[in-house]
Design a protein around this nucleic acid. Structure first.
Lengths: 225, 225
DNA sequence: ACTTGTACACTTGTATACAAGTGTATCTGT
DNA sequence: ACAGATACACTTGTATACAAGTGTACAAGT
């Protein structure tokens, strides 16, 4: 497991949570991996308590399974879980971008404009690895513009189910299309065009329609049923 | 605070969680009430650890606010939070009942039929206090029929924001309309009529459009801003 | 060979001890 | 009387000790 440095004012619990999330998303912690509170505590240089609190939180998002007195492990990829996450993301993103069309102002436009410009820059320079974070930030910004930031926060951990499957099917060839989507969404937001914005969100999410069968063939041991 | 008995195979953490949730929903624990891990531990007859784990979970759903080294309290009613919860419930319930129209089978119909019949029975006998749980179960069943039970689970704690405001504006006169809504939804589900089902969900949720101004006048100390 | 029991090395769950920070009440000096 | 220092009684955060359950390895007896 990759362990980053504990930040300055970061509590031990938040540290553990951050490290675990990052490693689950990046598949450094593979689905099915057995984890132990004691081991993690030693590895991160903190006690069991904050580790345990982080593990409990992730188990509530179905990212870790805890079997009392027996052990815990990183949840296997559960197609039903991934489906529900995708379903939820689709309906929420759609409704939120429509709300954002009503709520957006100059400041919001500037925020998104900066983000998309940067994405276009990195794309033109071929630095596509920089786009991942900007992509996430773009969507988070839209939630904040629509005044739905708590919904974003609540859903964010759940979307890790989605993210780690995406990371199993890396097709960076799609990057330029994704950036184009963002540009188009921004234009629709500027114009207050809900219908187009909603359509774009749907088209955008369709790009992440991963080929479950292929991934499952490659990594059957990562899957649940 | 009302403390129920700890169930047989219930862990101390789940016990604490259940008691806290129930008391927050029922407003036995009023918005703004200061709580202390030590006090709760004594009161529930368990140690700080499981109490603390429950409090952390509720703080993640914004139902409790924790100020390190200073104290914790039951979150005040935050209109923005209530709005987001209602927004989320509306879009999710709508999408889920549409999905249920496609997925429902004989077994699902029987499940809902039993529930609604019971609601109608209690309503005719004037035992409207029994309807609350059946109402919740009805919606949960629809999520399960649509194979979206994890979404229900994830959202359930968040909807407490909604529930406790509902409990501040008790207008039981609406009960019979609610039961009628359920009957109509069931018929739409049987017919696989997505459009009608979605409209019914919206109409149904509009009944819970609480008069925030009035509640705020009555109980200004419960509100945030 | 096989079954059965048993010790042991793990696991998570819970309780408790200690660390560190905050706010208040009180005491002290001016 | 008032200002400031200080002790103290809280709070949550973290570490650690102990409880209880599980599975495995292994030895003893049949």
């Amino acid at each position: 497991m990759k362990i980053h440095r504990k930040l300055a004012r970061e509590s031990a619990r938040d540290f553990a949570l951050r490290v675990l999330k990052e490693n689950i998303i990046s598949l450094e912690l593979k689905p099915g991996t057995v984890i132990s509170e004691n081991e993690l505590a030693t590895e991160l240089g903190i006690s069991r308590t904050p580790i345990r609190e982080a593990i409990i939180e992730l188990s509530k998002a179905y990212l870790i399974e805890i079997y009392p007195q027996r052990g815990s492990f990183i949840s296997l990829i559960d197609p039903k879980m991934v489906d529900e996450a995708r379903f939820l993301r689709r309906i929420t993103d759609t409704a939120v971008i429509e709300a954002a069309c009503d709520e957006i102002d100059e400041k919001g436009i500037a925020l998104l404009e900066d983000n998309v410009s940067l994405q276009e820059f990195y794309l033109s320079k071929g630095m596509t690895e920089k786009i991942f974070d900007l992509d996430n930030q773009f969507h988070k910004d839209i939630y904040e513009i629509a005044k739905k930031d708590i919904i974003y926060e609540i859903h964010s951990t759940l979307m890790i189910h989605f993210d780690r499957v995406r990371n199993l099917s890396v097709e960076t060839v799609k990057d330029f299309k994704v950036v184009g989507d963002h540009r188009n969404m921004l234009e629709a937001l500027k114009a207050g065009d809900k219908k187009t914005a909603a359509e774009l969100v749907n088209k955008h999410l369709n790009r992440y329609q991963i080929d479950e069968k292929e991934i499952r063939n490659q990594r059957p041991e990562y899957f649940k049923s």
